[in-house]
Design a protein around this nucleic acid. Structure first.
Lengths: 216, 216
DNA sequence: TAGATTGTTAATCGATTAACAATC
DNA sequence: TAGATTGTTAATCGATTAACAATC
């Protein structure tokens, strides 16, 4: 069994984007090499965990030297599939859809926004970040023709179910779901659910905890 | 030591918003009671974990009956501090700031948006979701006067540091940070960092994994 | 009461950390 | 070579699951 086929715990996978971000920053700063210890300080994780994590994918470092930042950055990008040129469409050109369409980090991470869709005649035809909003009635055709990989769901609550169905039927391979509804699908279509109010609630908990602590 | 003062593992805290969302939905559907087993089916977690989690805060159920949905919903809301009437300001009225300002889920969860700030003269004075965008130069005054609890950071990269400093100095108790930069602060100010591209990267990984699997 | 289901303890599992031999 | 730091195994810690007595 190749290293890349070992089953990687999902806690590790969820840490990869974070590593990737920090390495991007180091790369920007022109840092050439970094040790697990130095990275550990920066990221507030243990050096041991860093080495352990990387070794799920088979060691990118060199004894006595550390890790080459550029190489490691590229390797993690590959593992994450950021160099696969995944294309995506945004369905729902409301405020959130618009914001995501204009969010340049997506492009910087190697994703290509190829279409924005809405069902509102007033919105169809308007231009967001240089792209014309298309009529959602043409969604299936477009996805099939352009072989779109990812569907980003930013439609209102009531339209989620239908949107998901249509995206999946058209053959997208993954859904990034910003709707209130939590999606579970068959394992042939990957899903990530994003709930913007979750971190706000967690923050609220922490604030409350801080208050209680200071009272003691 | 009271139950509420036990130190709750952060994995448990991070699950609370999810419980809260599912309970909101059940409440909407008019469901009166639910057992850990039934909830377990719905949420794809074990019943054991649900009971274990709730018991960190001291048991909300009743043997032989299960949990009263309304009561449990309220209790978790209390734990999360959603009934504390936390106020918030959004700093940065760009696309993301606008989207968040219009995101009604925040209000539904008990948070009160009291101000939106920007430094761009073209944006100052415009109205977002019924609220006029204010000049960021008045940020400190406003926060002090209105005793704002939470600062939501949606400014561009270059303005993050200054924004954080000003928010903290003015006395906010928590930051919800959407900027690229990952914040760490002293423990008197709570922070949640949100990185919108992280779930997209994780999704990309899953898609890639699916592809490899189907090849085998 | 009998049945159901919690609260909670004990067992298991997995993830993190520590340690160190391998090696650049 | 000597020093540094990885890759990797072993030890520890914590979280999840299982089990069941308590009890509504």
């Amino acid at each position: 069994m190749k290293d890349s086929e070992k089953n990687v715990p999902s806690v590790v996978v969820k840490r990869l984007p974070r590593y990737y971000r920090y390495l991007s920053e180091l790369l920007n700063q022109g840092v050439k090499r970094i040790s697990s210890n130095a990275l550990s300080d920066k990221m507030n994780v243990t050096a041991s965990q860093i080495r352990q994590d990387f070794n799920y994918f088979g060691g990118f470092g060199q004894q006595g030297y550390g890790y080459n930042v550029e190489y490691l950055h590229g390797a993690i990008g590959d593992i994450l599939g950021l160099n696969d040129g995944d294309t995506m469409v945004i369905v729902g050109a409301g405020n959130l859809g618009k914001a995501l369409a204009s969010h340049d980090t997506f492009e910087k991470r190697g994703f290509k926004l190829v279409g924005i869709f809405d069902n509102n005649p007033d919105v169809i035809g308007t231009v967001i970040n240089g792209k014309e909003v298309m009529d959602v009635s043409g969604l299936e055709d477009f996805i099939g023709r352009e072989r779109v990989d990812i569907g980003v769901i930013t439609v209102p609550h009531g339209a989620v179910e239908e949107t998901v169905e249509r995206l999946v039927k058209s053959g997208v391979k993954g859904l990034l779901n910003f709707s209130y509804m939590e999606l579970k699908l068959g394992k042939d279509v990957a899903v990530e659910n994003v709930h913007l109010s979750d971190p706000l609630m967690t923050l609220s908990y922490k604030i409350k905890e801080n208050k209680q602590e200071s009272k003691r």
